[in-house]
């Protein structure tokens, strides 16, 4: 690939070579032009709509927002991060300005609303991810081992709710939960309920999120298992390996990319979830997305930016760790 000469276009023109179309084709076939045409628009898009907003948000997170006229005061400060993480913004913050995170007997661990929201979000996202994994693994295995119309129908039925939009699915659980919702009414009718766990709250939120993101996990696992050579598994079994051995030594390592990928697809949106906890938490479950949204709504833009940056950085860090772990694991052949 020769380095193109920018003057060539003019040379072409001077020589009057070829038609417009020929010139166009020739121009486009030069590497640098081709690169410009192919990468240019995407780069502009990513720079302008992904990198720029994130960088802007990063900058805003080090500012103060005037709460009277909602304008950003461009003076660098770390105050927003201290506000988030219970620093010394105001003296009362750690007592009156905080909430109880953990209480065992007389021992009390306190946290800011943001810290609690972050921990709650990560906890909910983790449980959701594990639930999805546990529920999707057997089914993905079954689908990968079999073929035919039944598999196709199953995939169809699994995908359908998936395409039916997040909102509709979250809403369908609104009808199910609640002290007089479908589940508790049914339990009440058979004399078991109503049970608190089927009221709106954290469990309802987890169920809603699991329902929402389950197909992501299933599809990712299925995609990674579908390429597997199951004769290895059979061979191992023939050599006397127990089922658990086979799952641990063969299937899990081989499908690790799918497990990590699926977990990522479930975990990330669960951390940032805000419609599901809003609808199914009945205002009592304050995940980090809800808190950040409220700050934006209140025009506390600096604080919202700082909170967002914290979430982004923590997720990226978690992902880096996750991918490292997987690679190591695969190398070790565990």
């Amino acid at each position: 690939m020769a380095t193109p000469n920018p003057d060539e276009i003019e040379d072409d023109a001077a020589r009057g070579a070829g038609t417009v179309r020929a010139r166009l084709v020739r121009t486009l076939s030069r590497p640098r032009t081709a690169l410009g045409v192919t990468m240019g628009p995407g780069t502009v898009w990513i720079a302008g709509l992904l990198v720029a907003p994130l960088v802007f948000m990063l900058a805003v997170s080090f500012t103060t927002t005037n709460l009277t006229d909602y304008n950003i005061i461009w003076e660098p400060t770390l105050a927003r991060f201290r506000e988030l993480l219970g620093g010394s913004v105001d003296a009362g913050l750690l007592d009156g300005g905080s909430v109880v995170l953990l209480e065992v007997g007389s021992f009390q661990l306190r946290a800011t609303a943001f810290e609690k929201a972050i921990l709650l979000s990560y906890a909910i996202a983790t449980v959701t991810t594990l639930l999805c994994l546990a529920l999707a693994f057997p089914l993905a295995y079954l689908l990968a081992r079999r073929s035919g119309p039944l598999v196709k129908a199953t995939i169809f039925l699994m995908l359908l709710p998936f395409f039916t939009m997040y909102l509709v699915r979250a809403y369908s659980w609104v009808l199910m939960f609640g002290s007089k919702g479908v589940i508790n009414s049914a339990l009440g009718a058979v004399g078991v309920g109503p049970l608190e766990v089927f009221n709106y709250g954290v469990p309802a939120t987890i169920v809603g999120l699991t329902h929402a993101y389950y197909p992501y996990m299933l599809l990712t696992l299925y995609a990674s298992m579908d390429g597997l050579d199951f004769s290895l598994v059979e061979a191992a079994r023939d050599l006397g390996a127990s089922r658990i051995d086979v799952i641990r030594d063969q299937i899990i390592p081989l499908t690790m990319p799918g497990i990590v990928g699926g977990s990522l697809f479930v975990f990330v949106p669960s951390v940032g979830a805000f419609i599901t906890p809003q609808i199914l938490g009945q205002g009592k479950v304050q995940m980090v997305g809800i808190l950040i949204e409220r700050w934006v709504y209140e025009s506390r833009l600096s604080l919202a930016s700082a909170g967002s940056m914290f979430v982004v950085v923590s997720i990226v860090a978690a992902m880096v760790l996750a991918f490292r772990y997987v690679e190591l694991d695969e190398l070790g052949g565990a």
Binding site: L67, D90, G97, A113, F114, R300
Partner: peptide, 18 residues
């Protein structure tokens, strides 16, 4: 009032977080 606005807003966030 402006001077306690932040405390007021945080108090509500804390209630919702509790």
């Amino acid at each position: 009032a402006d001077d306690v606005e932040r405390e007021y807003s945080n108090a509500w966030n804390n209630v919702k977080a509790a």
